[in-house]
Amino acid sequence: MIETPGIAALFVMLAAVAVAVARQRNLFGVVVLTGTYSFLMATALAALDAADVAMTEAAVGAGISTVLFLGALNLVGSLESKPMERPWIPLVLSLFTGMLLVYGTYGLPAFSDPHAPIHTHVVPRYLQEGLAETGVPNIVTAVLASYRGYDTLGETTVVFTAGIGVITLLRRRRKKKEEGGS
């Protein structure tokens, strides 16, 4: 089976880019590496059969997020972060939390186990009845827009609220600039 080693290789590349992000101090470099990370994540998601998520991650994660970061860097005007002081406390804390989480994974079912609870509840019904009930062959779309439509409504509310927040924050800024100019 070529599938599993390919996915594992993508995970290793993701980990390498994450380490590079942590070490990089130039903020422009960090943003470019984050874009690389998002594209690798999109590839890994495509390899994990999540086509819709991969497309969204490539468009939103690698596209819009990178543009947002670059725009913010332009406004902030600082391109270098300070070197770390005392990196040991966060490192030990992360390692300890990581070990606890790895211990936790021993209670989870193995990768690609068809008898895992995630594959035996709710989802078989979506896969069998989804096409007949909603008329959409893509089950992800059927669940998103029909079975769990309220989730999507909630999501829209969150995005709307965040949009209002951004406009409020940046409008105060523009007003101030106008006052300062006149």
Partner: peptide
């Protein structure tokens, strides 16, 4: 493959970029 996590994560990605925009603002 299981479609349900895909749906939940689609929502998470969009909400994530919204909170990122707010954080950067």
């Amino acid at each position: 493959s299981n479609p349900l996590p895909h749906v939940l994560i689609l929502t998470a990605i969009v909400v994530g970029v919204a909170t990122l925009a707010l954080g950067l603002a």
